[in-house]
Computed example of a mutant assay.
Amino acid sequence: MKSTAVFLALVLSLSGCLSEEKAYGNAAGYGRSYHSPVEIVIPSNAPSITQQFRRIEDNEHYGLDVHAPIGTPVLAAAGGEVIKSYWGPAYGNQIEILHPADSSGKTSRTRYVHLEDRVAGVGDQVKRGEQIGTLGITGFLSSGFPHLHFETLYRGTSIVHSADDPNLYWVDGEGQITCYDPRKHDYLSTDKFVLIYPVPCK
């Protein structure tokens, strides 16, 4: 019991340090074991990425983690239909969006995990940049650390076979994290699967 309390205190203290010193404009590295790291350019006003996508046997992380305060709006990274909106013990509140087929004829999905609240429900048609929920710490795999775990399932449905690094699909190009701007991003063609950052930039 004592060790659990110490662990939680450590996590909360790390969260506090990150909130004050590195809350914006920072992106965690991929680590030496990642086979194809992406060079990241993150705007100084974008909430920081604390963990990158990785596909390593026995140490997978099928998305990226964005750190921001609890209650921060979570945005649809691309338009589509909400096909899942539910709570589960491991990942807490989560939403999955099915996006229209691109020029390949295949659909892709995005998944938003550890939400505090879900605003969008199954069957809702959402636009790119529309709020679908709020960032939280729900589910025991959140480790008590406020963040959005954001996944991209590119041209498929399987987390094991279709999960891909979201950093490959930003609107402004590979590795170019793109903050949502309705003046530029509301009218994007769906011929190519592209994403905006799933939380607002300040």
Rank of each mutant, 00 (worst) to 15 (best):
P47G: 13
Y187V: 10
S44G: 11
E57S: 12
L115C: 11
R128N: 10
P166L: 03
Q51L: 06
W87E: 13
K106S: 15
S3M: 06
D65M: 12
C17E: 11
G79K: 12
T190L: 13
G129Y: 04
K184Y: 01
Q176C: 04
T110W: 08
S44W: 10
R109E: 05
I70A: 15
G92T: 11
L135H: 12
A46R: 10
I196W: 05
V160A: 14
I97F: 04
D191A: 13
G79V: 01
E151L: 00
G139L: 02
P182Y: 06
V171R: 10
T110L: 13
S33M: 14
V126H: 02
N26C: 14
D58K: 12
A76M: 04
G71N: 11
S19I: 01
D181W: 05
A90H: 01
T190F: 10
S143P: 01
T4R: 05
S189Y: 08
R54S: 08
P100E: 11
I95Q: 02
V6R: 11
G129D: 09
V74E: 12
V113K: 01
A90D: 05
L75Y: 03
Q176P: 02
W87R: 07
Y30W: 09
K127Y: 00
D172E: 15
P100Q: 08
D102T: 04
P146R: 08
A77L: 03
S85P: 02
G88V: 10
G133I: 04
Q51A: 14
V113H: 02
V160I: 11
Y62G: 14
I40E: 14
